[in-house]
Each structure stands twice: as structure tokens, then as C-alpha cells.
Design a binder for these strands. Structure first.
Length: 178
DNA sequence: CCAACGATCGACT
DNA sequence: GTCGATCGTTGGG
């Protein structure tokens, strides 16, 4: 299945198909991760989505074409990255929550600081890959940060999403099983 | 204009 | 396990 095929699926089906994918960044040299944890957000249909009340300047990228990166600031401190899924205007997106190092581990350790996890959460993942708001609206198909889907689907479990206050029971967090 | 509040992390107990 | 940091965005007045 190609990345474009995956990005045409309903978001709760696309999200787990991105588990095991490679995310590669050319920001400040090459770094890449294997994606191990994601969450699905369903735009206007989803009380927990930033986009559920329609577009705002911050969330505009989420209303763009499949493969667009939506990058936002969390708690005034961290950056978090999503890959937009589904047609223009639907604002469905997959939050990239965690990964394990493939390339550029020393550079990622350097960015994260000594003795800290490399990409065990969405803020850490962005810091490790050098993703900032400057990449909001770029494309993972041909931009400085790209995604390559796994050769075959990876086993996972589904759980409720983390850190939200609405739709807390919807099991749209997907985690690779060891 | 302004107050409230996060799709979190890291330090500390 | 708990809690404080920190600031851009949002929406209400």
C-alpha cells in the first residue's frame, strides 16, 4: 500500500497503517525514526480535534490536502506534528506521538539532551527530528520531512487518546506491540 | 482587550 | 505519582 493509498482511508484506519512507517527529516542533517505510536483526530466530527469548530489561522494546515503537516505549539513549549489524511476541507489528521531511532541517533540525542528519552512523546519526537512551526503546511510527500509507509502492516493495540478532555473513551490511540 | 487553557515534559517526592 | 513551567490561540465581553 502506498502512502497516498493510506492517506485516503478513514482516519481511524489510516492512523494504525502509519505505525512502522519511517519519518525522515532533513532539518539540520538527516535524522529518522520508526513510528511506534499515533492518534487519530477526525476534524469537525471530533470534539477532541483542534479543528472541530472549523478552520482558524492555527489549524488551517489541517484543512489542506493529504500529506500536509499540521504542526502546533503545545503548552507554550513543545511542538507537535500531525499528518493530514482525507480530502481537502475535512481536517482529519494523525498525531505522531512516538518513535524509535533509525538514522542520526547522535544528532537526536544531542537535540534532546543527555539521558533523556529520544522520542517517547509527541513533543520529544518533534524536537528529535528538528520539527518546528516553520514546517506547518509542508508536505510529507516531498517536503523536508517525509514519511515512508511500512512494507506490511504492523501489529498494534488501540486505546483511548492521551491528554484530552472530550471524547475520552474513543479508542483512537494506536501503539505498536512489542 | 483579556483571561483561560491546553493533543506535554521533566523535576522532584 | 504529583506538580509547576510557560505562551500562543481562542473566544467571550
Amino acid at each position: 500500500m502506498t502512502l497516498l493509498d493510506i492517506l485516503e482511508l478513514p482516519v481511524e484506519e489510516a492512523a494504525p497503517r502509519l505505525l512502522g512507517a519511517t519519518i525522515a527529516s532533513d532539518v539540520g542533517g538527516r535524522t529518522s525514526l520508526r513510528i511506534t505510536e499515533v492518534e487519530a483526530y477526525a476534524g469537525e466530527l471530533d470534539e477532541a480535534s483542534h479543528a472541530h469548530r472549523g478552520p482558524t489561522p492555527r489549524t488551517l494546515a489541517m484543512f489542506g490536502p493529504p500529506g500536509t503537516l499540521y504542526v502546533y505549539r503545545s503548552y507554550g513549549i513543545h511542538w507537535c506534528a500531525n499528518v493530514v489524511v482525507a480530502p481537502v476541507g475535512r481536517a482529519r489528521a494523525v498525531l505522531l506521538r512516538a518513535g524509535v531511532p533509525i538514522e542520526g541517533e547522535p544528532r537526536m540525542r544531542d537535540r534532546r539532551g543527555p539521558d533523556r528519552p529520544i522520542a517517547a512523546g509527541p513533543g520529544m519526537l518533534c524536537q528529535a527530528l528538528g520539527i518546528t512551526g516553520a514546517l506547518d503546511g509542508s508536505s510529507v510527500l516531498d517536503g523536508p520531512v517525509r514519511v515512508e509507509p511500512p512494507a506490511s502492516p504492523v501489529p498494534y493495540v488501540a486505546t483511548p487518546r492521551i491528554g484530552i478532555s472530550k471524547a475520552v473513551d474513543t479508542p483512537w490511540r494506536f501503539v505498536v506491540t512489542d
